[in-house]
Amino acid sequence: MIKLAGMALIPDLSGALYVPDYEALLVADLHFEKGSSFAARGIHLPPLDTRATLDALEAVIAARKPRKLIALGDSFHDTRAGERLDPADMARIRTLCDLCDMIWLTGNHDRELPTGVGGNIAAQLSLGPITLRHIPTAPDGTMEIAGHLHPVASITRHGRRVRARCFVGDETRLVMPAFGAFTGGLHVLDPAFAAIFPKAHFTAWMIGPRAVHAFPASALSP
């Protein structure tokens, strides 16, 4: 369990975050239709990432049964993703919006959302004392949960290195891992994270196949 602003947050193996106080499920960086975005350039990546992402999303919703579903931006890989979306996948997204109270936060990839996806759209949102937004930006002292950076971390034991997606945070903020099937990762020891965790005093909650494990920054491998 992760605590932020006194609130209990439960990291899920899928990369989602459950907030029991609000019965809310948070996911970041779904990047729907990332595969097809390459096709126009002649790179025919499998047009299957949206359904793979939806499979995972439906599974975690079935398990946690949240009242609210909040996507922290970059849910669609680009503003024309909606045109490429398979009608069957579109129908599944709409069903999710019917199933729970859906809020899409906008991200740098999806300043506009495809028409007809359902749910509500916002730039940011408050969950009690915590602000939810796409890009981590809060000044010191205020609390936020964000996405955007796709954090991953690695650890070495017995001569073997394990790299995994992770939640990363300190007393004031938490950055969520990317949820999408085709989303890569940025290592938490990358300088991009130093901007928000200046003294590298953070914890990485690494996602294993069976459990989420917490490590201080000092225990991680580059």
Binding site: I155, R157, H158, G159, R160, V162, A164, M206, G208, P209, R210, A211, H213, A214, F215, A219
Partner: peptide, 15 residues
């Protein structure tokens, strides 16, 4: 290298 240890095992050991 010793095989047969899953990722979880390595993370669990480290934890």
């Amino acid at each position: 290298p010793i095989y047969g240890e899953g990722h979880d095992r390595i993370l669990e050991d480290a934890a």
